[in-house]
């Protein structure tokens, strides 16, 4: 466990809807946090009453408990004109925050976990794709990922082969870019911001930046919630709960290259919060 590393990242702690429900207690990195105020003026305090810094980005309130926080990454697509920004609320999962991110980077589970939506037998094969650590900003990227999907998005009319790209800008954030059915030259952006309540429990805040002006907000959110709640029942049943960084503990194949790169990248940074690093 490396709390020191994790303390200096920024985490989502609230969104507009949750603040409108009134003050609330939550947890971050094992400690209690008090959330109150409004979206324009959020008030975030730790258990001792100390005010924590906040910033509003990507339709969420972010905070950090570190003394020397790393700067919060950017998602430039969020500022592109024509995109619809869709915060999706929060879902609590009893799993390691890192397992939640890793699952988001995985396509091989689509036919079995998101059956008839993001995948379907017999289209189970994962074609080779490219994974790299981009040096300039030290991010994990997977590109040229392709998968056949019966119902890729709320805006899809039927089965298509979807192109994906994945980006990990911070240990507890994953961003994906995927073919946008009504606008094939553009890509929809879907992210999860994971708030680590502890090493074994997290609040996941999905957020989307889509080219879709037609679908009602409720349908967009519920499509995302449907997908994520299918994942939740997997995530709560993986053992060990913490993400093993020792490659001998689990068996990756070629389709798991993103996960392999993500785990190596965590190891290299010493981002062990939520990881099982004991056997290293």
């Amino acid at each position: 466990m490396s709390l020191a590393y994790a303390r200096n990242d920024w985490y989502v702690i609230a969104d507009r809807n949750s603040l409108e429900q009134g003050p609330r207690r939550t947890r971050l990195l094992g400690d209690e946090i008090h959330v109150s105020g409004s979206y324009a003026h959020p008030v975030i305090k730790d258990a001792s009453g100390r005010m924590l810094p906040t910033q509003i980005k990507f339709d969420h309130v972010w905070t950090t408990v570190g003394d020397r926080p790393r700067p919060l990454f950017d998602i430039p697509e969020g500022n592109e004109p024509g995109r619809r920004l869709v915060p999706c609320g929060m879902v609590r999962v009893k799993c390691s925050p890192l397992r939640a991110v890793e699952n988001f980077l995985d396509i091989a589970h689509f036919p079995f976990v998101h059956t008839d939506v993001l995948g379907a037998e017999p289209y189970t094969e994962v074609e080779p794709y490219k994974v790299e650590i981009r040096e300039q900003n030290d991010e994990v990227w997977a590109t040229k990922v392709k998968f056949f999907q019966p119902l890729a998005a709320k805006s899809a009319a039927g089965g298509i082969t979807t192109d994906y790209e994945y980006r990990v800008p911070a240990p507890t954030t994953a961003v994906l870019y995927k073919t946008c059915p009504p606008k094939p030259e553009a890509q929809d952006v879907i992210t999860i911001f994971v708030q680590p309540r502890s090493e074994t429990e997290c609040d996941v805040w999905p957020w989307m930046a889509l080219y879709d002006d037609d679908t009602p907000y409720a349908d967009l959110v519920q499509f995302q919630q449907m997908i994520f709640l299918q994942d939740r029942s997997i995530l709560e049943n993986q053992r060990p709960i913490k993400l093993p960084l020792d490659p001998r503990m689990e068996i990756p194949t070629r389709s798991d290259l993103t996960s392999v790169a993500y785990r190596r990248w965590l190891k290299k940074r010493g981002a062990f919060y939520g990881a099982l690093a004991e056997t290293l």
Binding site: D15, N17, S18, P87, C88, G89, M90, P216, Y217, A218, D219, V221, Q222, Q225
Partner: peptide, 10 residues
């Protein structure tokens, strides 16, 4: 008709 039960409490 999808109703935004959560997060919108519709």
């Amino acid at each position: 008709v999808a109703i935004d039960f959560y997060p919108g409490y519709e």
